[in-house]
Simulated scan of single mutants.
Amino acid sequence: METAVPRLGVGAVIRNDQGEILMVLRNREPEKDTWSIPGGKIDLYETMEHGVVREIKEEVNLDIEVTGLLCTAETIRPEKMEHWVSVIYEAVVVGGELRNMEEGGAIGAMEWFPLNRLPDKLASFTAAAIEALQRKE
């Protein structure tokens, strides 16, 4: 039996030249059918910064450079046996071409959204990231 322990995830707030934020529509649990910043879980013995760079490449085919730590967020749902701690970075695109690498899998859609016109159903850690971004600006 797996011991219930908090899981560690990373995410990136990636903005384009118009200041829009890249969001992906989650196709699976946790938080299926919500809009989220791209990211994923950390592998054992991997640094968080390396993990976020790897996850973004695996999910949306972009090469990113981390420009700073934005915030941390927690998702705690005992009823679903979920406890995630997410470390969220700000990043810029330095290469690659935006493409859904998880089509038919983890990601249903991808879209750039202006900060003042975000979709309604945000994943909980994404909502925390947006709040941190708005406080900062």
Results as ranks from 00 to 15, higher is better:
residue 26 R to M: 09
residue 9 G to C: 00
residue 33 D to V: 00
residue 101 M to G: 06
residue 104 G to V: 02
residue 11 G to C: 09
residue 38 P to I: 12
residue 21 I to Q: 04
residue 117 R to M: 10
residue 35 W to D: 08
residue 47 T to D: 12
residue 67 T to K: 07
residue 8 L to K: 01
residue 35 W to I: 03
residue 55 E to Q: 14
residue 61 N to G: 03
residue 89 Y to S: 09
residue 82 E to Y: 04
residue 10 V to T: 13
residue 130 I to C: 02
residue 60 V to M: 06
residue 125 F to C: 05
residue 107 I to P: 01
residue 120 D to Y: 11
residue 57 K to A: 13
residue 28 R to M: 10
residue 44 L to N: 06
residue 111 E to V: 08
residue 34 T to Y: 07
residue 123 A to N: 10
residue 66 V to K: 04
residue 113 F to Q: 12
residue 21 I to Y: 04
residue 63 D to M: 04
residue 60 V to T: 04
residue 2 E to Y: 12
residue 26 R to Y: 09
residue 61 N to T: 00
residue 126 T to C: 12
residue 124 S to L: 05
residue 45 Y to V: 10
residue 60 V to C: 07
residue 77 R to F: 00
residue 90 E to H: 06
residue 131 E to T: 14
residue 27 N to E: 13
residue 44 L to Y: 13
residue 112 W to D: 07
residue 112 W to G: 07
residue 109 A to M: 11
residue 76 I to Q: 04
residue 35 W to P: 03
residue 51 G to L: 04
residue 7 R to Y: 05
residue 52 V to P: 08
residue 71 C to T: 15
residue 28 R to L: 11
residue 96 G to F: 03
residue 30 P to S: 03
residue 94 V to T: 15
residue 93 V to K: 15
residue 53 V to I: 15
residue 92 V to Q: 14
residue 74 E to C: 07
residue 57 K to N: 05
residue 71 C to F: 07
residue 11 G to P: 03
residue 107 I to S: 02
residue 35 W to G: 08
residue 57 K to H: 10
residue 69 L to T: 13
residue 50 H to A: 15
residue 71 C to W: 02
residue 104 G to Y: 01
residue 28 R to K: 14
residue 21 I to K: 00
residue 132 A to L: 04
residue 22 L to S: 08
residue 78 P to S: 11
residue 47 T to A: 08
residue 95 G to K: 09
residue 79 E to W: 00
residue 10 V to G: 11
residue 62 L to D: 03
residue 125 F to Y: 14
residue 11 G to A: 12
residue 127 A to W: 07
residue 63 D to A: 08
residue 106 A to M: 09
residue 103 E to K: 14
residue 65 E to A: 12
residue 90 E to R: 14
residue 18 Q to I: 00
residue 68 G to Y: 09
residue 112 W to Q: 05
residue 50 H to V: 13
residue 102 E to C: 02
residue 51 G to W: 01
residue 137 E to F: 05
residue 50 H to R: 12
residue 23 M to C: 12
residue 42 I to K: 15
residue 133 L to Q: 10
residue 3 T to I: 15
residue 118 L to E: 10
residue 14 I to N: 09
residue 84 W to P: 02
residue 41 K to R: 14
residue 17 D to C: 03
residue 54 R to M: 10
residue 17 D to Y: 06
residue 121 K to N: 14
residue 24 V to W: 06
residue 112 W to N: 06
residue 112 W to T: 06
residue 35 W to N: 04
residue 53 V to F: 01
residue 84 W to A: 09
residue 123 A to V: 06
residue 3 T to L: 14
residue 57 K to P: 03
residue 33 D to T: 05
residue 50 H to P: 01
residue 136 K to C: 04
residue 74 E to P: 00
residue 110 M to A: 07
residue 111 E to R: 15
residue 93 V to M: 08
residue 111 E to P: 01
residue 38 P to R: 00
residue 115 L to G: 01
residue 55 E to W: 02
residue 14 I to T: 10
residue 121 K to Q: 10
